[in-house]
Design a protein around this nucleic acid. Sequence first.
DNA 1: GTATTTGCAAACACTTTGCAAGCAT
DNA 2: ATGCTTGCAAAGTGTTTGCAAATAC
Lengths: 132, 132
Amino acid sequence: MTQIQFTFKKTPARLAISEFLSGVKAPVDVEQIIEYLRLQKLDTNKVTVYRILDFLFKNQIIDRVEFGEGKYRYEFKTNHHHHHLVCTSCGRVQDVEANVVEKLENEIQKNKNFKVQSHSMEFFGLCSACQK
Amino acid sequence: MTQIQFTFKKTPARLAISEFLSGVKAPVDVEQIIEYLRLQKLDTNKVTVYRILDFLFKNQIIDRVEFGEGKYRYEFKTNHHHHHLVCTSCGRVQDVEANVVEKLENEIQKNKNFKVQSHSMEFFGLCSACQK
DNA sequence: GTATTTGCAAACACTTTGCAAGCAT
DNA sequence: ATGCTTGCAAAGTGTTTGCAAATAC
């Protein structure tokens, strides 16, 4: 029984970023990550942060999403696939699951002969607090 | 009976960009728009193109989408809401409709008390030609 | 010891802004 | 004539690259 293994030197910056991402409840941008590192007294260069995120993303440890802001956001890969509800007023982000999408993928596969590998889905609107 | 009206000076660049976007079958980026304008012998400044797209987007004449490329793509607003199948191999883009999403929005509204205003959904994978 | 990882500087890609000149109406 | 629109230069934001020094193993 073999196991997929990749070289992963446990440097302070990598550990801290993994730690941070695993604890966060909504996708964060690079700025927030650097801010966290600063609080941890780790003055990591922005370039290094980008490279670590690239590394984690390519090794499928984290997900990368876009909220129409012209930048990427990152979050730890979860075992339950989910999507996001992004409040256009306060920016709050909630998770939401959608089993219908898997069904949809099967239909697309069949009707369009398109082999779906991944998808992205975000909802924008007003969270409960901002509707008042 | 009043009608919502916005000042829309019909300048050559605006007309050409509208013309181009209305004829295109997949969302295009700014570079493609400028290339089109060049072919039309309209050497429009890039800044002007951005401003026109901004204008059309804010007036809800066009849609702006992201395909995880770190840039925006634009397409004419259609009366039938649709999503995209983006081929990760050749880049081909097809449209797909998904009525399930409306149902999903209602559920979200009810279960999460989140007022959905808009959403984005893209599928990435292999088109029929690239599966061979 | 050695290959990987980091920091720095610089560049790159995409987008926005300020202001004066130009143009549609 | 007037206010909207454009071009130019510049700057802003997010991201990537080259290379030598530092570091995990």
